[in-house]
């Protein structure tokens, strides 16, 4: 019997739409990461000052808050995502130059880069294969981020090295949780916009890389 079943058809459409969001998100994420790496190399080559790097990061946050919401449903959103990735990537230039000046700098940067890749692929693979719903983590993750921001503000003026390391460790844990949360939202249809999904995952990867580099730099004994 070839009877049309609207429930199954709708289910198939939903799965196809989800797969499309996942595919578009990962394609765009890989492109933005590549672009970020190129811009980081440019930032290193032209020896950006820490002040300019900070301004670029502030500019990227401004784009995320004020510009992205207006363009996230149009193709213009793609340009905004690349602008964010470019600014954050170039802003990494002075940090990478500082680490590469250490005796084991190339090893530290390479390990942080590879480690970030393994963490992201492992967590995304876990969320995609188990198909678990991690939406219950939302409140915990948001409160965790607020606590970490509070500790960061306090440590800007107190300058306690142990607290700084604890903040970096906390950021890695929270961003790992956010990768699970964001991937699960895409799988279960909670996130249908691949531009927003890309920015969320990109920021998690960026923060894990910077925090991991900080921890490895401090623990290697050369920081």
């Amino acid at each position: 019997m070839n009877e049309f079943n609207p429930t199954i058809a709708r289910g198939r459409e939903s799965v196809l739409a989800t797969n499309k969001v996942i595919r578009n998100t990962y394609i765009m994420l890989s492109m933005t990461l590549l672009f970020s790496a190129v811009m980081a190399a440019v930032g290193m080559a032209i020896n950006l000052s820490p002040g300019v790097s900070m301004m670029m990061s502030i500019g990227a946050i401004g784009l995320i808050w004020l510009v992205l919401p207006r363009f996230e449903n149009s193709t213009g959103g793609i340009a905004v995502v690349f602008a964010i990735a470019g600014l954050l990537g170039a802003g990494l230039g002075p940090i990478l130059n500082a680490y590469l000046a250490l005796a084991n700098g190339p090893q530290l940067v390479g390990t942080a880069l590879g480690g970030t890749g393994v963490i992201f692929l492992g967590l995304s693979g876990y969320a995609l294969t188990t198909r678990k719903d991690f939406s219950f983590m939302g409140g915990f993750l948001f409160v965790g981020i607020l606590v970490v921001f509070g500790a960061m503000i306090a440590n800007l003026f107190m300058e306690i090295p142990a607290l700084s390391l604890a903040v970096s460790a906390g950021i890695i844990m929270l961003m790992s949780g956010l990768i699970l949360f964001d991937t699960s939202r895409i799988i279960h249809g909670g996130e249908t916009n691949y531009i927003r999904a890309t920015v969320g995952l990109y920021l998690s990867i960026y923060n894990i890389f910077v925090s991991l580099l900080h921890i490895l730099g401090a623990m290697s004994g050369d920081d």
Partner: peptide
């Protein structure tokens, strides 16, 4: 289900620190 992958991340970072 969250503790498992996050625990694996912690162990992996300890491994990376020992490596450097």
């Amino acid at each position: 289900g969250v503790a498992l992958p996050i625990g694996a991340v912690v162990l992996f970072i300890v491994f990376l620190v020992m490596m450097v």
